[in-house]
């Protein structure tokens, strides 16, 4: 079955007007959506929008879940019924949701410095508001931002990006339309060390194509990292600035840079 829309037309443009290696617009917002969350972030990759609230480290609700030498990470993910083109309500036990939660957990467990908070719990609530491809990528990036916003010690800012391949030409940051038709892979990188936090592929991909996409996605993640870093930096500078009125601080400098 082939889609009626050309994935990549003769002029080298994709269905949404992007070039092959072009990423979608990234928007980052740190405004708190709850009244009392410790950290929060909303990220949009084009039309995909995910919002994350972080609570903690705090006392665990269930004592049986705690570890004596490290924090317990609890992730809950909810996909809004209106987020996709076709309205669909997913329950708590939905396989897709459980799998996403498990993937997020295994991505962030090595990144959060959990040993600093024994017997505590860090709650991460992920809310998917809009879906247009690259759901896992948006979830990971939003969680990184919310954790950084909550002041939870991280080894690095994890950045995720999706790559796919159309016949022989690789594409980056796929939309839902492209994701349905193309073999794709999501990777999450720890940019400082260059280590992979996650490589996830749910489709079949020719082994000769894998390396190319993998490398390309690795490069794209540095661009995402730039955006994430810039957002964290700006919000930090603003907060530091507000804390000391009258003093000219690094905040003004950081803003002038861009």
């Amino acid at each position: 079955m082939t889609s009626r829309i050309e994935i990549l037309n003769a002029g080298g443009y994709r269905s949404d007007g992007r070039r092959q290696f072009e990423l979608r617009t990234i928007e980052i917002d740190f405004s708190p959506h709850g009244s009392n969350s410790d950290g929060s972030a909303t990220i949009s990759h084009g039309l995909t929008q995910v919002s994350v609230s972080v609570f903690g480290p705090r006392e665990a609700k269930m004592r049986s879940q705690t570890f004596h030498d490290r924090a317990n990470i609890n992730i809950e993910l909810n996909i809004a019924p209106f987020s996709a083109g076709e309205r669909r309500k997913r329950g708590r036990g939905d396989k897709r949701v459980l799998e996403l939660v498990q993937t997020l957990k295994s991505t962030f467990e090595p990144v959060i410095q959990m040993s600093l908070y024994p017997r505590s719990q860090i709650d991460i609530y992920v809310q998917v508001l809009q879906q247009d491809g690259g759901l896992l990528q948006a979830c990971i990036n939003a969680t990184t931002l919310a954790l950084a916003n909550a002041g939870i010690p991280l080894f690095d800012l994890v950045c995720a990006v999706t790559g796919g391949v159309h016949s022989t030409s690789p594409l980056l940051d796929l939309t839902q339309l492209e994701e349905n038709d193309l073999p794709n892979v999501t990777i999450a990188v720890m940019p400082r060390s260059g280590k992979m936090a996650l490589v996830s592929m749910e489709t079949r991909l020719h082994v000769d194509r894998f390396e190319e996409i993998f490398r390309l996605a690795g490069e794209a993640s540095t661009v995402i990292h730039g955006e994430i870093k810039r957002a964290v930096k700006e919000t930090t500078a603003n907060l530091v600035d507000a804390m000391q009125p009258g003093k000219s601080s690094a905040g003004t400098n950081a803003e002038n840079e861009y």
């Binding site: 070039r19 092959q20 617009t25 990234i26 928007e27 708190p32």
Partner: peptide, 15 residues
Amino acid sequence: MSDFKMIAFTSFPQY
């Protein structure tokens, strides 16, 4: 509070 938005359009001209 510390809310702000930013827009970035990023591309890879060559591979």
